[in-house]
């Protein structure tokens, strides 16, 4: 964290003397929980879609290189969905993060007002909130049916639940961090305003769960964020 603060301070100080800009963006997130659930029969680990929004602070270091940081609010969702004879059972995890990426942008192309930038950097995130919505086959909400030859079958009903999650200091790793890469096409409307669309891939190298157990099965968020926004340049 200390390094991030130092970098931020560096940007702010430098921006007093050079070209800097601020912007806003919002977009779409697609998150994959990188883990192993192959032991869980007929269970699919499904990516979750959600939103991202935030502020951008950019410093133009050289013609081809820009440094930027953001303050993002985004969701990294995923779900475990049962298939086949267990279809209908699911657990949907909605995770809200506050994220601070630090990025170096390298200009790959320029064509008139169009620019294409390659983004590389790292990020830290803080897990702000979690909600788990699910459907479970309830062992104590059942009914039985009797067939023509007198065989009794017990059928379990599905129960929906929505759980406002309380974080556990024992289990949950609320900070995550990792590298990111991306690509940003940008259109310079004029000297002051520009519009961009970017696609980034955030790869957490810190598991969502603490290493509280021997042979712990780790869980890493891998998030694609596609966002659009505009920048205001201070000259």
């Amino acid at each position: 964290m200390r390094q991030i603060y130092i970098l931020l301070c560096f940007f702010i100080i430098k921006s007093l003397n050079a070209q800097y800009s601020i912007g806003v963006f919002s977009g779409y997130t697609n998150n994959h929980l990188h883990t192993n659930i192959s032991n869980r029969l007929l269970t699919e680990n499904k990516n979750g879609n959600s939103f991202s929004t935030g502020l951008i602070f950019k410093y133009a270091y050289k013609n081809k290189i820009q440094l930027l940081t953001e303050l993002d609010l985004l969701q990294k969702n995923y779900s475990f969905v049962r298939k086949g004879i267990y279809e209908g059972i699911s657990a949907n995890y909605r995770n809200t993060y506050l994220q601070l990426p630090v990025i170096i942008e390298y200009k790959l192309l320029q064509n008139s007002q169009w620019e294409l930038w390659f983004d590389v950097g790292f990020f830290v995130s803080y897990w702000v909130d979690r909600n788990i919505k699910g459907v479970i086959s309830n062992v104590f909400d059942s009914y039985y049916a009797v067939d023509a030859i007198g065989v009794v079958t017990n059928y379990l009903r599905f129960t929906n639940y929505s759980q406002k999650y309380s974080f556990s200091h024992l289990k949950d790793n609320r900070f995550e961090a990792g590298p990111l890469v991306g690509i940003t096409p940008m259109y310079q409307i004029n000297n002051k305003y520009s519009f961009f669309v970017n696609t980034r891939f955030y790869l957490s190298i810190i598991s969502q769960q603490k290493n509280y157990s021997i042979s712990q099965i780790m869980q890493y968020n891998q998030t694609i964020v596609i966002s659009a926004g505009c920048m205001f340049n201070f000259l």
Binding site: I132, G134, V139, F140, T159, K171, Q209, I217
Partner: peptide, 16 residues
């Protein structure tokens, strides 16, 4: 609902 030791669902009501 998961492979972690403490990966639990919410408590759901039990009925007769």
């Amino acid at each position: 609902i998961g492979n972690g030791r403490y990966d639990y669902s919410a408590w759901v009501p039990a009925y007769i």
